[in-house]
Design a protein around this nucleic acid. Structure first.
Lengths: 238, 238, 238, 238
DNA sequence: AATGAATGAGTATTCATTCAT
DNA sequence: AATGAATGAATACTCATTCAT
């Protein structure tokens, strides 16, 4: 074992676990391999973590914290700021904008949130991969992905949704919309991160180009879906 | 259907493996568990299969065969039939329809293909789940999902693509379109199957309703994307 | 590993465990050592037993069965037989003998029970040792010894006690008597087995002599205690 | 009392070890557990003690010192005092009393010794338990119990024995007597301490009552044994 | 006197696979 | 086609002990 370069041993254990879990999956990763990659004594892993599962739990929890933090940042920088500046109000059941410009500003911010989300998932693509893997198994973290959905879901805490509803009061948040959000928004963004490297390699695009391309497509889908929503609703009412 | 190899015990082993791999993942599934669930002696598994990996390989290969079969059915029932009836021709670089009705018929058939695909993935949701799981790992079957993409990809074997290109000769098969196909078509449909049970439970929809809802949203997305494609192309040319 | 001599592998595992647990104690015994001594593959131990603890549990349970069996034999050969021959009856609260000779016969049988008990504990001295060890620990088997006491205890199933009560109706089964039974009857007999080898070695007596000596002392104590019981009761009533 | 070595942390380590060794046995006790219970850093244990074994050794040695001290006290307060007062002499092979009263006084003192012994074992029931546990194992401290026997044994250092021999010159110190002393005196008293808590709980007696009851029974046994010894000797001579 | 970090050797248990019948 | 027994190589986790400060 060489003299370890980098941060603390604990940090190295986390990074090694991240890399290995994401490459081979949690179950196929051996604690021995983590120790080797992290250049630490195997027993030290158990000094910092209760068990192999505990490492995974720590990482998942950590991602959740970060995700919540992003959402909170959005709320702080957009909603709270706009309220303070008198551009919008929170009504019991919806958001209200004082002007068309205010609404446009908010929509712009929402698009920025998507960009941030893409950045976020790409920065955390390893743990995202792990999360996907675990979500597919009927185990402890099978709800991770669905939990992820929460802050994009049609409920009282979701400002994006409210905005759309506000823009078009007749536009009901149908179950189709939720389905759209999950299978054509969350799932693609998360899989985009998970398969980023493979896709980049297969498409011969570089990192920046691929990211831009995804956002472009994503934007088209999202905006066109909103305009196409009357069709959805029509069908939904049958 | 070919003459089945092996007795019913073999069948039980395959079904048990399917259930367990899909629930816990390949790595977390024990040969013991398979034997127990299949109600066979553990050693018998090795009579029918070379190894645990061999069971997985068999199942993946089986799915591929089925997928190819669906595509072949489509080609047989749509393309070949229409050619025989003089409704279309295959040009070296594209399909050619003899009339507007012929084209509409073909588009209708394409939508039916989507429906069949949804049926197909739902019928095989267990192995789809397994495949997703394996695709996320950098292992033997990591190409399964990308392989799946093949017959939806912009290449010579993909009739759907050709059709769209034929309908609008200016509509180039951009990389954005491929990205769309992969992340907003394949990935959602496959994940739809993988998370079908969970989503059904969470949404309180029944099987039929959920399937219909998915197809509805899917249709909106796909059609609106085609109409929105000029935006995409515009962006793509920058 | 030499070609194993002896019975089945399972039997060898039990015997090896018996020897090692009794020599070093359960906690200090390594599964590796058991495997080596039993000349079996370590994994085979887990084929036959769920865990190391499971081996211990099996042996303890086994001893209990044997102990119960001895007691049952006594009841069968003494009580049941005498009842059938009209020598004694079971009254709701006590035994009743039809003659003085009958009582003497029963007392003789009781003494034989003691002899059988000594034989029994000596034949099982290894597991007795283990039991003592485990009884001293606050664990799963801490009640083993007290459980042993059961069929020597003052309760409805205890024929020996009844006999004494029957002989002298005024002689109440005081708590002192139970204490005597436990600390000066059970404990010595059990420890006699546990320390037999060491004591034999220290005393320069052979197996037969030592056994006889113990029974001799035991008999004196028991009989003298009964005659001395009036003193006990006197004290007890204060 | 000597000047205590080490601070209060050391004391806490000893107490924690005492509690844990006595509850779980030496082998099942983890140094970690000791550190936790003692509220000290694990490494500090190795500052005060060479090893885990060293803690046990210290405690056993400590008990031996105390036991010797009790015996010495008895000798000091009884024998030496009586000699100084001209009530008894030490002959090369036995003790000699100048009067019947003197002998009675000595016998009274002997009974007091028993009481002291009971107090002593109860005060040290934890270490007694540990000692019993270790005696049953074929290890370092397997002689602890036999060592305990020493000062009750028929040898030159045993004043009690001498007394009896003195009282009845014909009463040979037979092997049966030693066996009695060990299995019906030492073993019960030591196990009385070891199982004190459990027995107290099972019998619904309080501490004081149980102690008294034990002494009562013990006294009956001892005295009756002496009177019954002629039977023993008779048998012994066959 | 005290401690957080580190470690080598082990420890029970598991697991895919094979063998003999 | 089927099975009970057996096994080598791991595998997660533990533990007494030491080190550096």
């Amino acid at each position: 074992m060489e003299k370890p370069i980098g941060g603390e041993a604990r940090e190295r254990i986390i990074n090694a676990s991240l890399a290995l879990f994401s490459q081979k999956g949690y179950d196929a990763t051996r604690v021995n391999d983590i120790a080797d990659l992290a250049c630490v004594n195997k027993a030290l892993i158990y000094y910092y973590f209760k068990s192999k599962q505990d490492i995974l739990d720590y990482m998942v929890e950590n991602l959740n914290k970060k995700a919540v933090s992003i959402a909170m940042d959005f709320i702080q920088s957009s909603i709270v700021k706009m309220i303070k500046e008198g551009l919008m109000d929170i009504y019991p059941d919806r958001l209200h904008f004082t002007s068309g410009e205010a609404k446009n500003l908010f929509l712009e911010n929402s698009m920025k949130l998507y960009e941030n989300l893409v950045d976020f998932v790409l920065e955390n693509k390893e743990i995202i991969r792990i999360l996907l893997l675990e979500s597919l198994k009927r185990g402890k973290h099978q709800n991770s992905l669905f939990g992820f959905l929460k802050f994009m879901k049609k409920d009282d805490e979701n400002p994006i949704f409210k905005t759309i509803c506000d823009a078009d009061p007749d536009f009901m948040c149908s179950q189709d919309l939720i389905l759209f959000e999950f299978f054509f928004s969350i799932i693609p963004i998360v899989n985009f991160a998970a398969y980023f490297d493979e896709y980049m390699h297969a498409s011969n695009l570089n990192e920046k180009e691929l990211k831009k391309a995804f956002l472009r497509v994503y934007e088209v889908i999202t905006s066109s879906f909103v305009s196409g929503s009357d069709i959805l609703l029509k069908n939904n009412k049958i």
